[in-house]
Lab assay of single mutants.
Amino acid sequence: NKFNKELQWATWEIFNLPNLNEEQVKAFIDSLRDDPSQSANLLAEAKKLNDAQA
């Protein structure tokens, strides 16, 4: 299933962003679980936040 692979990839990527704190990671993962179809958008937002906090 396409969404499942995207969800797994986005989850792994978010867990490995070095500049997000635990609460931010949890919030993004919760959002992914709530709406897996938004995984690409949520990953992009997480990466933006990660870069901003570098």
Rank of each mutant, 00 (worst) to 15 (best):
N1D: 15
N1A: 01
N1P: 03
N1L: 04
K2N: 15
K2V: 14
K2Q: 15
K2D: 15
F3R: 00
F3I: 10
N4S: 04
N4R: 03
N4P: 05
K5V: 13
K5I: 11
E6P: 04
E6R: 02
E6F: 10
L7D: 06
L7I: 13
W9V: 08
W9P: 03
W9G: 06
W9I: 08
W9Y: 10
W9M: 14
W9F: 12
W9K: 13
A10Q: 04
A10F: 15
A10V: 10
A10P: 02
T11F: 14
T11E: 14
T11S: 09
T11A: 09
W12Q: 15
W12N: 08
W12Y: 12
W12K: 14
W12H: 12
E13V: 11
E13Y: 09
F15L: 15
F15V: 05
F15N: 15
N16S: 09
N16R: 04
N16K: 10
L17H: 03
L17Q: 04
P18A: 05
P18E: 11
P18I: 04
N19S: 07
L20V: 01
L20R: 00
L20Y: 00
N21A: 08
N21G: 09
N21Y: 12
E22V: 12
E22H: 07
E22I: 14
E23G: 05
E23R: 11
E23M: 06
Q24I: 02
Q24T: 04
Q24Y: 01
Q24S: 02
V25A: 10
V25S: 04
V25Q: 14
V25F: 02
V25N: 01
K26P: 00
A27G: 10
F28H: 01
F28S: 00
I29L: 10
I29A: 04
I29G: 03
D30L: 11
D30N: 13
S31H: 13
S31I: 14
L32A: 05
R33T: 12
R33A: 09
R33Y: 15
R33K: 12
D34R: 13
D34E: 14
D34Y: 12
D35A: 08
D35E: 07
D35G: 03
D35H: 13
D35Y: 08
P36Q: 04
S37F: 06
Q38F: 03
Q38R: 06
Q38H: 06
Q38A: 03
S39N: 06
S39W: 15
S39V: 07
S39Q: 07
S39P: 04
S39R: 05
A40E: 11
A40T: 12
A40N: 12
N41F: 08
N41E: 14
L42G: 01
L43T: 05
L43S: 02
L43N: 01
A44H: 07
A44L: 11
A44N: 10
A44W: 07
E45L: 06
E45R: 05
E45W: 05
E45P: 01
E45I: 12
A46E: 01
A46H: 01
A46K: 00
A46L: 03
A46V: 03
A46I: 03
K47L: 09
K47R: 11
K47E: 06
K47Y: 14
K47S: 05
K47P: 00
K48D: 08
K48V: 09
K48F: 07
L49K: 05
L49A: 04
L49R: 03
L49D: 02
L49M: 10
L49Q: 04
N50I: 01
N50Q: 02
N50H: 02
N50M: 01
D51A: 14
A52E: 12
A52W: 11
A52K: 12
Q53I: 09
Q53M: 12
A54N: 13
